[in-house]
Design a protein around this nucleic acid. Structure first.
Lengths: 218, 218, 218, 218
DNA sequence: GATGAATGAGTTTTCATTCAT
DNA sequence: TATGAATGAAAACTCATTCAT
């Protein structure tokens, strides 16, 4: 009400920054609700309450509930790109991936993130639009990792590594599989896990695909 | 479908076998609906229609919707045990795990199974009862794999392998991570993936935790 | 079907006595259920369980749920007649009514009877058929009491008492009002109540309607 | 009906008065439905239709159906207090009670009130929450009448009347018993009843508990 | 006579969405 | 911009009743 007092700038439409802030505010609230109740059991009333605004007003920022879900999925998908970029910023991309294990595990182990991730995957299984978003984000991340990896192998003088995409997919799967566990059984901090994980990643990324590797260990 | 009960309205007290068949019939229908729409968007009306019986009648076999979900989760949780047993039936447990990769990938890649799995994990994130069921099943499977693995290592004359549980968890994560991908991007049949997967599993299960392994692949 | 088997006493239709016994069995069970849950919240399933027979079978003895209710109302309505007859069996009808206070209070104070009575009255308010049954029973009881009272007054040499029906109605109201209390607040055994009650009934039944009686006591 | 709120869809935050009016509107509609069909057979759809609003909207004003019932019971319970207060406003409390007979009979004889009252008593028999509400209201009314009566007796120079509560209970029972009759047989206006009623009440409230009173009327 | 599986309409309640203010 | 009252179409679940056996 009195909040609409003009800053001398008249009754101009809220600047884009304002709008973005509001959207972020809703998104944050929605993420909380969705984590707790899932996409479909979280009511718009609950979201609006958590966001500190009226139900009706949310519809100024999002066309409907599905749009909120989509925006959240988008936001979540961006995160992997951040990780990619942080690896790229380091001198040795390969080593960065292995060194990133500890932080990766810590992320995988956060209940709230895990819950939302599972919610998103479940939604993707039934909502083609969401599936498509995930597919695109996945494509981008895969390409990014592959190109950086290719460069890393080259710098190391290795042959152009074969089956790069399969490698990246598997490293990703390792983390995502752990995220899945988190929802029912958060892993306590575990050095053994990190160590074994590093070894697994190293094995996946290594390029010597000698026949022996498929044999039983020792 | 596979229901051996004729669709006629039998009235003599159903024998247990009959009852079980009916329950399975409902479960099958429910799984279908849940895959398509998720636990909470699939209506009892849809399930009953798919099961070929009236809404009301479903409640003769399941106390409520949640009970159907729980039964499905139970059924799904049993599957890993079947895998464990099939490995145990083979002469070399370690090799069996590695040889099982192809079949495992095939399983992981089935859309319908993946969708239901994600639905279950998402539900676990918000429903403590479901989480607890998963936790129990996970515990049982983990214990089973660990004890068989321990025996396998001993037979091979290896030291008592350290961090066994971490190893098993990671191998599981690898598959579950791939299942997660399946919902948005089913992997076409891919020999490279299988090969890399075998190498990864071998590396995880191998017991030489030399410091070198944590280093970047040559 | 086979019920039409001819005599020889073999598969004869159940004797009337049998049928009556079954009906009574159902009625007893239904009364219990109705007391606990009311006419409309008590399910046929609950009644059949309490009666120790299948739901379907109840419909051999009663056309439908309403018929059970009606039969119960009928049964309940007969009770007042029993009281009337017990009074008539005594030498002094008037005195019998006053002496009956203690037993009457005891009856009025039984939770189960009170609950059913209120259920019946509530039902009568919405179900004309039940209302009509109550009206008829009430008419019969009223007439019975009035005629016995008239005889009693005559024997006592009193004038033909005026407003007999009003008197009887009021005595009845006294008891029924107490029954109403019982559902929320069963009166502990209370000599004061009985004493006051006797005085009230005596006053009601006494015929000297001197102007003074309408005045304030003392 | 008496709702002062125009049927237009106002959207500014309703003031308390508005809210109260809406609640009253729902209550009025519900009372009508309950009288006709009873608490459990009256559907929320019927109530909302009678109240002129959508089913969903009723839940803005009442948490659920039981809350509506409870509110109605509360409202009904308040009425006896009004009667008490009107008696207290008169110069002679005892006389007021006796003079109040005509109005009391008129009240007792209204079909709609009687139906609702029986519904409430029946509900109390199975719903402890309602029973408790009735118990509390009864307690308050009893205490109120007793204290006023005690004062009246004292003013009159009578001994402290004994068994006051029993007296009040019986006077109440007299009226409530008549209300019970009303549902199946509304008493036509009847001077004889009123006269006898006054005599009964006078007898109940009078304090001379001579042994003679328990004897048969001359 | 006796059973209880089966039906499907009906119940209460929730919720995304709209829109007058 | 912001509100929240209002809608009405589901949803899960219950239940009287039927009827093949």
């Amino acid at each position: 009400m009195s909040a609409s007092a003009p800053p001398c700038r008249g009754r101009k439409p809220l600047e884009q920054a304002q709008i973005d802030a509001r959207r972020a505010q809703v998104l944050e609230a929605a993420a909380d609700c969705f984590r707790r109740s899932g996409f479909h059991s979280a009511s718009m009333a609950a979201i609006s309450k958590a966001a500190g605004m009226s139900t009706g007003h949310i519809y100024h920022y999002f066309e409907n509930k599905e749009a909120i879900i989509a925006a959240l999925v988008e936001r979540d998908s961006d995160e992997l790109n951040d990780v990619l970029n942080s690896f790229r910023a380091q001198s040795d991309f390969l080593q960065a991936m292995i060194d990133g294990v500890d932080e990766g595990l810590a992320r995988a182990n956060r209940q709230d993130r895990a819950a939302l991730k599972m919610e998103i995957l479940a939604e993707a299984a039934r909502n083609p639009k969401i599936a498509s978003m995930l597919r695109d984000a996945d494509r981008r991340a895969l390409d990014g990792f592959c190109s950086s990896l290719r460069a890393a192998y080259a710098a190391r003088g290795a042959d152009d590594a074969c089956d790069l995409e399969a490698k990246v997919v598997l490293v990703g799967a390792l983390f995502n599989g752990l995220i899945g566990r988190t929802v029912f059984s958060p892993t306590r901090d575990c050095p053994a896990l990190a160590k074994t994980m590093r070894r697994a990643i190293a094995a996946i990324l290594s390029d010597d695909d000698g026949a022996a590797t498929a044999a039983v260990p020792r």
